[in-house]
Design a protein around this nucleic acid. Sequence first.
DNA 1: CTGAAAGCGCTAACAG
DNA 2: CTGTTAGCGCTTTCAG
Lengths: 345, 345
Amino acid sequence: MVKPESDNRKIQMADIARLAGVSISTVSRALSGSTLINEETRARITELARSLSYTINLGAKNLRSGENRTVGVVIPYLRDNRQHVTDPFFLGMLDSLADQLTDQGFDLLFSRIEADTIDEVANWVDSGRVCGIIIIGQWGQHERLNQLARRQLPFVVWGAQLPQQMYCSVGSDNFNGGLLAAGHLLGLGRKRVVFMGNRDATEAQQRYQGYLAAHAAHGLAPDPALYLPSPFTEPKAQSAMTDFLRRGVAFDAVFAASDLIAINAMGVMGAHGLNVPKDVSVVGYDDVGMAAHSFPPLTTVRQPLDLAGAALVHCLLQVIRQGHADPRAVTTELVVRASTSAVSV
Amino acid sequence: MVKPESDNRKIQMADIARLAGVSISTVSRALSGSTLINEETRARITELARSLSYTINLGAKNLRSGENRTVGVVIPYLRDNRQHVTDPFFLGMLDSLADQLTDQGFDLLFSRIEADTIDEVANWVDSGRVCGIIIIGQWGQHERLNQLARRQLPFVVWGAQLPQQMYCSVGSDNFNGGLLAAGHLLGLGRKRVVFMGNRDATEAQQRYQGYLAAHAAHGLAPDPALYLPSPFTEPKAQSAMTDFLRRGVAFDAVFAASDLIAINAMGVMGAHGLNVPKDVSVVGYDDVGMAAHSFPPLTTVRQPLDLAGAALVHCLLQVIRQGHADPRAVTTELVVRASTSAVSV
DNA sequence: CTGAAAGCGCTAACAG
DNA sequence: CTGTTAGCGCTTTCAG
């Protein structure tokens, strides 16, 4: 099954060789850019190959050469979260990786997988399906990832750098991002800045540390009541903010751990008659496309997806070739838009 | 390059065979579920294989058996549009396809490609990289797609069914979707319903036809001034709506060709002091996750992504095996939320 | 039921 | 510079 229709047999090297009146090896050399071949013969063969729109059979090539230029990209999901990934950040990351990998001549094998069965990605490598794997997000599987690293599985993950980490991670500079965001709000004269996100998620935790540091730099310590736990999904972010408002805690700013959370929080606050940025200034995190077009447009910490994708690919190749790569952070940058303003006098 | 580190040689059939004291062919049979093998031997071999966490080398298997269980999925993009895809609909579709394909034992090779060089996907098939291709969206390349079909390329596309179409498409029932949406608005007593979208895009065109049909069913013909051209991107949708408001055309409802457009339009209208749904009722298209959590939550025409993904995969397999499959439409359904209401008396 | 042998489409020594 | 010769890891006749 899953074989093509019988009639249109695919053209292969032997055909080209016959037509060009040379040996198969000559064709192979011509097409692979070997130097030990007459330029004239190469030209003839290349031309012939193109006119027949011949493309080399990658499976055979890989099998023979032991190479592999396919990398696996997996977006894990939590079982309870289930359903489809909805945060546009992931699409952006995937896009970026696709472009990077294509540029470098790699194919991208995509898969979703339950976070707690993430070990299964090892099969992709064991079976020679891919040469390495990029995992988007840690999803609380730090220890499992460490185990994969012990098995010498070639992979890198997009996420935070953690203590006792045996694998290579690439992430944004979360601490600094948090510092920038909270610093910006405090600099505008905001006094009671809510941190909205899930501190149990490693990246959010680091952003929270930056948030604390910004307060310290201003000689402040945030009221613990200003920590507003919220998952990274839209409905839960909305209900978290709704509950928070009901509690009546005073606040004049929100730093959300993702743009998606921020935008949903702004929506809820707007529906409750609060004005953003006047009553409450809001900063998000990621700078997804939507952030520039929300109402009001969202001030946020930009994670440069193109650099991130490039770094992930770079590190993965290093892990594959040298067995190791150091974790990295790509620099973050504050993008100021209309969702933040100075306190009015 | 891109070879794994030398030391950890991958275990293969020969190893299992040696350890089990049988021939390679026996291992092959045991693992592939052949019937002509002693159940006891099979058990022993399977167990051994699992304990060594052996996974079969797919490249070799495919090469030998001529099979291929990888399908290519491509999301084209327009050059001027460039940058990253931003509409969450695509992520949803990709997710759905990933799940469907995984369930059916296929791998998913993902790629972005410029819409007007879409012919290049043929290489994936010619080189034996994939057994077939799923293209997300027509992107105005109907004729190019027809040419690919003439070349017998095994592919299907998510999009509209068009005149003189030689390839298999799967899409939502755009006409009916438009009919439902506009019918709903007219049924609420709305009289001047804007159609916002790009009529040149084939799917939007069909939704527009449904919009016209709904008017006809109510004995109406829409004012041509109510056609509001808009691309499918956020900034352009916003400026289109901004311009439209400036023009001062009277209207009391909007049917947008995508949720993304609808949500951005709602934002612009809100910023101009218009109340949704009271002053203007809005219906979108797609039912992306965001639609349920916008302000107000968006009434929309749901495209069932799971069914769509399943249909795409099903059709692709049929094209591969039988050389042909008929185009299909998956049924759409109106999801009523708070962005639409009856005209007040 | 099992083993031996041939070969999928290609690359890479090895000899000219 | 080019052809000959072995396989890459697996499946599949063909004989036992």
